[in-house]
């Protein structure tokens, strides 16, 4: 190897190893790097000086002008932050859509934590309340779904539509309610209107039974008037 070649190798090696000087000084190089450095430094004056400077630097690193020490107050602040973090995690979990099993599990847990007598009392009260609610809400005699027509009979001005024949009646002043009911029963009649301003009633008898009904009514001594008036039609 010529002198030039040796110099060239040295320069190359120096460029490669110069950056490792701090690591060499601090003893943090790998064994292989360290061996190379030892060899190189023995021959390289520049690296010897650099080693010297790095050693000085390592021994004389300036201390911070201000020091920082941990303190209970600072740690308390950190714990408060941790609490916030944990709180937000719990909130996130709570904000997730609650699946049915979770809800039932919570109810089940709550029930299992309730004393037995209280639990049974609550159960009985719940059943009683449910039965009462059903009784109130549901009709005892459900109507057929054919849309029955409900009409009031109290309005004499707009009489309801009738299916049978109507008869107008006037009674004696001493006619009692009992006598009236008995008579209507015998004539198979039902009051549809009345009493009017002049004291008349309109009764309905089944179609085809008008003659017999009229005969029965007229035969009664306290009936002053029994006059057929045909079918009653409700006015629009």
């Amino acid at each position: 190897m010529t002198t030039n070649q040796i110099n060239e190798t040295m320069v190359k090696e120096h460029a490669e190893l110069e950056g490792l000087v701090p690591g060499y000084v601090m003893g943090t190089l790998t064994q292989k790097e360290n061996s190379k450095m030892v060899k190189h430094i023995a021959e390289c004056e520049s690296c010897q000086k650099e080693v010297s400077r790095c050693e000085y630097l390592a021994d004389h690193l300036p201390a911070a002008t201000e020091t920082w020490k941990p303190s209970p107050a600072h740690f308390a602040g950190i714990l408060a932050e941790v609490d916030k973090l944990e709180g937000s995690t719990v909130k996130l979990e709570d904000s997730r859509p609650v699946a049915s099993p979770g809800f039932f599990r919570r109810i089940s847990t709550w029930i299992s934590q309730t004393p037995s007598p209280v639990r049974w009392t609550l159960a009985f009260e719940t059943v009683a309340f449910a039965a009462l609610a059903l009784f109130v809400v549901l009709p005892l005699h459900p109507t057929s779904g054919n849309g029955g027509v409900f009409e009031t009979l109290s309005n004499t001005e707009t009489p309801a539509t009738t299916q049978g024949e109507s008869i107008r009646l006037m009674f004696a002043e001493d006619m009692t309610t009992r006598e009236l009911l008995e008579l209507l029963k015998q004539a198979k009649a039902q009051i549809r209107q009345g009493p009017s301003a002049v004291g008349s009633y309109t009764v309905e008898v089944p179609a085809g039974n008008t003659e017999q009904a009229l005969a029965t009514l007229r035969a009664y001594p306290k009936v002053r008037l029994a006059q057929p008036i045909g079918k009653l039609l409700s006015s629009p």
């Binding site: 430094i41 080693v51 010297s52 400077r53 050693e55």
Partner: peptide
């Protein structure tokens, strides 16, 4: 300047 002659041991 930083000292250049120190405890260099090779």
């Amino acid at each position: 300047t930083l000292p250049e002659q120190g405890k260099v041991t090779v």
